[in-house]
Design a protein around this nucleic acid. Structure first.
Length: 453
RNA sequence: GUGAUUGUAGCUCAGCUGGUUAGAGCGCUGGUUUGUGGAUCCAGAGGUCGCCGGUUCGAACCCGGUCUUUCACCCCA
């Protein structure tokens, strides 16, 4: 006999957790549908060559690979072993678990390009897997809720992403959070403007730590990564910039005047804000963060990240625009933009804040109880009447003491108990007890249906 | 992937510098109550001290490995 256990970073979800997850999921789903997105699903596993190369070197390492069926080692030669794991991998594994929902979606779009009507808006709610080292709010199996639209470069999509995030958060009673937004082109422009064209990656990684380690340490790190002294001097005014949204935009227009790409990024961002204004919407919770960078290498335009304040969980949502993700699968020129909610992290956030609505962990409204064989039979005869009337009803299946039946109802949070004893049977009624108030009354089944349902 | 950290009853945790039969609270089971749950009181059951190996007369405690938890780095939902 061995003790059963779960793989690292995976979890079971019990009835209470599932009720809460469903609450989050339903909120998100309803919002996606309201904005015209249609649901699809894709397989848990993809061909490895669909997944590799889309997430950067780090990402490739975090992919779960699936061992080939059968004699998976038959193609491996002795000298492959000496060359190391890289030489062996593609001989023993040709499939992997999906790392996110965006890349499988891009694959889906390319394969179904003739059937789809563009712009195509889809949402997808499925688990993804990452061979990361688990921490709080970081799992190896977790759900993403993606909404993407492909086949248009309209910035209306970016604006709607902000609206969807705000709607979901409002429904979940989340009040204090930031939707951080930036544009990859601005990051490219900054790298160009300070004389380090093409190095926006390391630039952002370092700048991102500004709050944590301070400007001096950031400079050290950038120097280590090969940034020149004059570049750092050029960068300094941007780092010390503290301004509101229009102030930041105005500053960047000057700062990026030598970078065509950078100015385009600023223009796109302004356009998004302008669209929101035309929709008659304010910019609450929207935070233009000049140094926001997102790792996934395929983003080319807007980038998003959402953080809830006063909690220990990282970002709960993220996304961005990708101009050529379908290009790698042979369909160039299709721009897409999308974002994703992390249900598991949203769960942790709501849990930490204690703002899950107080729902009962059961949907059962009525438990039929009895004292003896005769009452049991009477209860059985009433059971279908309640169910046919649409009342979620159960009967305690084993004949046990009525105390135990009440205890069961109490623990399961069933709000009403129907007692079926000799007196009730004779009169053709049922005694309905409210488990919260303790009130109890004899009544007919239709009367009971009205009270309980 | 690098460096730390955690693991004792169903849950939350005690357990002295290694020394007999490893404890508490809550929960659980039964009774108190033969037509009634949540309260009181009484009684009871539950532990290969994560797992494997080593040191020792003797290990929950020391050492090594492994799994798991949490944290930092990295990265991310």
């Amino acid at each position: 006999m061995q003790k059963p256990s779960l793989p690292k970073g995976t979890r079971d979800f019990g009835p209470v957790q599932m009720a809460r997850r469903t609450y989050i999921l339903d909120t998100i789903k309803e919002t996606f549908q309201l904005f015209g997105y249609q649901q699809i699903e894709t397989p848990a596993m993809e061909n490895l060559n669909t997944l590799t190369g889309k997430y950067g070197d780090e990402g490739d390492q975090l992919l779960f690979k699936i061992l080939n069926s059968g004699d998976f080692i038959k193609d491996v030669k002795a000298d492959d072993l000496e060359k190391g794991s890289g030489a062996i991998l593609n001989k023993v594994s040709e499939k992997g678990l999906r790392y996110d929902l965006t890349v499988p979606f891009a694959r889906y779009v390319v394969m179904n390009r003739n059937e789809l009507t563009f712009p195509f808006k889809r949402y997808q709610i499925q688990p993804v897997w990452r061979a990361d080292r688990p921490q709080k709010g970081r799992y190896r199996e977790f759900y993403q809720c993606d909404a993407d639209v492909v086949g248009t470069d309209s910035l209306v999509c970016e604006a709607e992403i902000i609206l969807m995030i705000r709607r979901v958060f409002e429904k979940l009673s989340l009040k204090e959070y930031s939707i951080k937004i930036n544009n990859r082109k601005i990051l490219t422009g900054i790298a160009e403007a300070i004389g380090e064209a093409g190095k926006e990656g390391p630039l952002c990684v370092a700048i991102d730590k500004l709050d944590k380690i301070g400007w001096e340490k950031v400079k050290e790190e950038l120097t280590q990564r090969g940034f020149g002294a004059t570049s750092l001097e050029n960068l300094a005014p941007l780092v010390s910039l503290e301004s509101d949204l229009t102030g930041k935009l105005d500053f960047l227009k000057g700062f990026l005047k030598s970078s065509e790409t950078g100015l385009k990024g600023v223009g796109e961002l302004e356009e998004v804000f302008s669209i929101l204004e035309k929709m008659g919407v304010d910019l609450d919770h929207v935070d233009f963060d000049i140094m926001l960078a997102r790792g996934l290498s395929y983003y080319t335009g807007a980038i998003f990240e959402v953080k809830v304040h006063h909690v220990s969980i990282g970002s709960v949502s993220g996304g961005g625009r990708y101009d050529n993700l379908t290009g790698v699968f042979g369909l160039p020129g299709v721009s897409g933009v999308g974002f994703s909610f992390g249900v598991d992290r949203l769960y942790d956030v709501l849990d930490e804040l204690g703002i899950f609505p107080t729902e009962s962990h059961t949907s059962t409204r009525l438990l039929l109880t009895y004292f003896d064989q005769a009452g049991f039979g009477y209860a059985l005869s009433l059971l279908s009447q309640f169910r046919n009337a649409g009342v979620k009803t159960e009967i305690y299946p084993n004949q046990v003491k009525i105390q135990k039946q009440f205890d069961f109802a109490n623990k399961k949070g069933i709000p009403f108990v129907g007692v079926c004893g000799d007196e009730e049977m004779k009169a053709g009624v049922i005694s309905v007890k409210n488990m919260v108030s303790g009130e109890q009354m004899k009544m007919t089944v239709p009367e009971a249906v009205a009270i309980v349902g």
